[in-house]
């Protein structure tokens, strides 16, 4: 070993290399952050400009002064707030019910013993591989059969029980809720539902927060499914509404950009709220150290 000592880099070299790596990493991260955020900033800037400014050839980051006009035009071309409300309703109800259903399903898969459990679970995980587009036609047929066309229930209900959500919760329960806690609850006289509600659910918070973000974003960005089942404009969700004006002559892009920018806010708020709950280590102190 001694003879190889000269291969070991000196202190200064190590320090330098570490610093260089940090700078490189930071550069890459900052660049990708800018790349990610840029479209949002750009749409915010465009929403203050009029049509000619938007299509001018020079690139400038200056704010325009057409915000009020764009807003007025936005309300003229589409039932914007109605669509926003529809989207908030669909995303909120959908996410809430998802949390309930997925946590129940995941908990059952994690804790209960029943025949065919591993087969069911394998099916569940396997179904995650199916591209969503494939299920679009069956989805439409089922919704039609149930008589839910042009109804918001058709947009949120089928997507409240997702394989990913159940999988996520199951993994969380298996890895971070000690079995003894459930046994203690049982001996304390809690039934199955009570144990789930009073002991398991509060301890699932980090996983639920993650799932809430995923589901909220999913419901908010949902486009294909509402497009297939919702027909009347006052049932439109925001993605549909924003898309619907692209066909009209002389699309007022400033208004569309304004609508897009506003429609980003709910996601942002949800993310900020939910990510606070994503703290781990919630079960520390339950057993031993």
């Amino acid at each position: 070993m001694k003879t190889l000592a000269f291969l070991k880099p000196s202190q200064e070299v190590t320090t330098f290399l570490t610093k260089a790596a940090m700078v490189l990493l930071a550069t890459v991260l900052i660049l990708s952050a800018i790349l990610t955020v840029f479209p949002f900033i750009w749409s915010a800037i465009l929403s203050t400009r009029d049509r000619s400014e938007i299509f001018s050839t020079t690139i400038s980051f200056a704010l325009g002064d057409s915000l009020a006009i764009n807003y007025q035009r936005l309300l003229e071309i589409m039932p914007f707030w109605q669509a926003m409300f529809n989207s908030i309703y669909v995303a909120f109800v959908g996410t809430t019910i998802s949390l309930l259903f997925c946590s129940m399903g995941g908990y059952a898969f994690a804790v209960f013993k029943f025949k065919g459990k591993s087969f069911l679970f394998a099916m569940l995980v396997g179904s995650m591989m199916i591209p969503p587009v494939l299920s679009l036609i069956p989805y439409f047929l089922i919704v039609q059969f149930l008589g839910l066309l042009d109804n918001h229930i058709a947009v949120w209900l089928p997507f409240t029980t997702t394989p990913f959500g159940i999988f996520l919760i199951r993994q969380h329960v298996v890895s971070s809720i000690p079995k003894e806690l459930l046994e203690a609850a049982k001996l304390d006289g809690a039934g199955e539902f009570r144990t789930y509600w009073s002991v398991v659910l509060p301890l699932m918070k980090p996983a639920l927060a993650t799932l809430a973000i995923v589901q909220f974003v999913f419901f908010w960005n949902m486009f294909m499914q509402p497009l297939v089942v919702l027909n009347s404009p006052d049932q439109y969700v925001i993605t549909q509404a924003l898309r619907s004006v692209q066909g009209i002559p002389n699309t007022p892009w400033g208004s569309v950009m304004l609508g897009t920018t506003i429609s980003l806010l709910p996601i942002l708020i949800t993310y900020v709220c939910a990510s606070k709950q994503m703290i781990s280590g919630l079960t520390s102190g339950a057993v031993k150290g």
Binding site: P178, E180, L181, E183, A184, L282, A286, V287, K288
Partner: peptide, 13 residues
């Protein structure tokens, strides 16, 4: 019956 577990199994929340 009441049981005290080796790991105590207190409800952490």
């Amino acid at each position: 019956l009441a049981m005290v577990f080796q790991s105590y199994a207190l409800y952490p929340h």
